[in-house]
């Protein structure tokens, strides 16, 4: 098991991430637009997770945890922004804001857990 290379280092012209990044966008958009909490959260997790995975694959970051933390931060900002403008528009957007914040929270927890419990030696220097 340890010896078999992953897809993206075995084949230099293949990557599993783009497909799911592209799926994450419409899923989260649909969830947010039609106010469907689980769909919005799922889409955002898929999108952010796969973007971080791709960054790691491309060698921009060594371990995914900091990337997850940054995306969580961005989601907190976005969710906060929605909460802030909520009183100024004619429709209640609280649940949408909570969906964004919740996905941020899950990502932040994932980042924290990863940093604490996954040994660094799992990743190439």
């Amino acid at each position: 098991m340890e010896e078999t290379p992953g897809l993206s280092d075995q084949y230099r012209k293949a990557s599993p991430w783009p497909l799911f990044i592209a799926l994450g966008v419409p899923i989260s958009e649909l969830g947010l637009l039609f106010d469907i909490f689980p769909v919005a959260v799922g889409g955002l997790l898929l999108f952010c997770g796969c973007v971080v995975g791709m960054l790691q694959e491309a060698g921009y970051i060594r371990m995914p945890w900091s990337g997850l933390a940054v995306s969580a931060g961005l989601l907190f900002l976005a969710g906060g922004g929605v909460l802030y403008i909520n009183p100024q528009v004619g429709v209640d957007m609280t649940l949408r804001a909570y969906a964004i914040l919740a996905s941020g929270l899950i990502l932040a927890m994932g980042a924290g857990a990863g940093r604490l419990f996954v040994p660094k030696s799992q990743f190439p220097a």
Partner: peptide, 23 residues
């Protein structure tokens, strides 16, 4: 399901520079 599939094709633990004779 997505995550499982990704781990299967991507096998996160295998990032070694000796990646394989397939290169």
């Amino acid at each position: 399901a997505v995550a499982t599939w990704l781990t299967r094709v991507e096998n996160w633990r295998s990032y070694s520079p000796v990646g394989g004779g397939a290169i």
